[in-house]
Nucleic acid binder design. Structure first.
Lengths: 131, 131
DNA sequence: TCATCTATATGCAAACTGCACCTAGATGAT
DNA sequence: ATCATCTAGGTGCAGTTTGCATATAGATGA
């Protein structure tokens, strides 16, 4: 069902920087896989119908391989064209750990934003009127 | 103390896309302010010593003004050069609401990532070995 | 006069992303 | 056989964002 997404896209973009990278690493942490399959499995992370363009996925995978965080081999499938199957390397596992720490920091910042926001809203609520 | 940050930067960049935008909007929600002051106040959000380059701030403010979400006027300060003082517009207030909803969605995705990650870790923990 | 602080801004390059488009094997229908 | 379609991987290009360097300029004090 996935693959090339044609037509108009949401184009909101307000997400996390390079967030697809740790998602792909986490999927590969569960076992080797190829790009097309990874693209389908990305939906698990709750992107509402908008994970990414396939070109983005393939490019991220290529860059992860260039950095030595994953390795690839060609595999003849039981059906369809050959697949480039990726596996997580030990370095990639460490990189995933780093990503997790970084995202936890991001999460803290996010919650500081929410609490600041709620502070403001309570102050404005007390004067009863909101233009 | 802030201003031009010279020297080497962390260059990790794994943060939230355009996250500075809602932070600036929220600060302006608390009252008008100018760029240099906003830059200082950004630290409240818990960016660990790395909020943003001043050029980024000024450019985001300019783009928010172009979209009509904030307005500006020149103000002669009691000291130092003139300042461009920004105020949140009603449209900007709505835009901030939208951002909050969007970041809540981001937060949900983030936590789905964390729970997937913990699932994996528990599975790997059971076989007793972790490099 | 000169350095420094405050304040705003531009130029440039690198990175990331979305969209359009291309290649190519496999599969099934006509 | 030919064609459309699905699977699978990929490139080219343009728009956006960002970090770093740098420019401009008023104010202030040595």
């Amino acid at each position: 069902m996935p693959g090339r997404r044609r037509g108009v896209q949401n184009r909101c973009g307000r997400r996390i920087n390079r967030f697809l990278e740790p998602c792909l690493l986490l999927l590969l942490h569960g076992g080797e896989s190829h790009g097309y399959e990874l693209l389908e499995n990305l939906r698990r992370f709750g992107f509402s119908e908008n994970p990414a363009d396939s070109s983005t996925i393939y490019r991220i995978l290529r860059s992860l391989e260039n950095k030595g965080f994953i390795t690839s081999r060609w595999a003849e499938g039981d059906s369809g064209p050959a697949r480039r199957v990726y596996s997580l390397s030990p370095e990639g596992d460490g990189y995933l750990q780093m990503w997790v720490g970084d995202l936890e920091e991001t999460d803290r910042i996010l919650h500081r934003f929410f609490s600041e926001y709620q502070n403001h809203m309570e102050l404005h609520h007390s004067n009863g009127k909101k233009t």
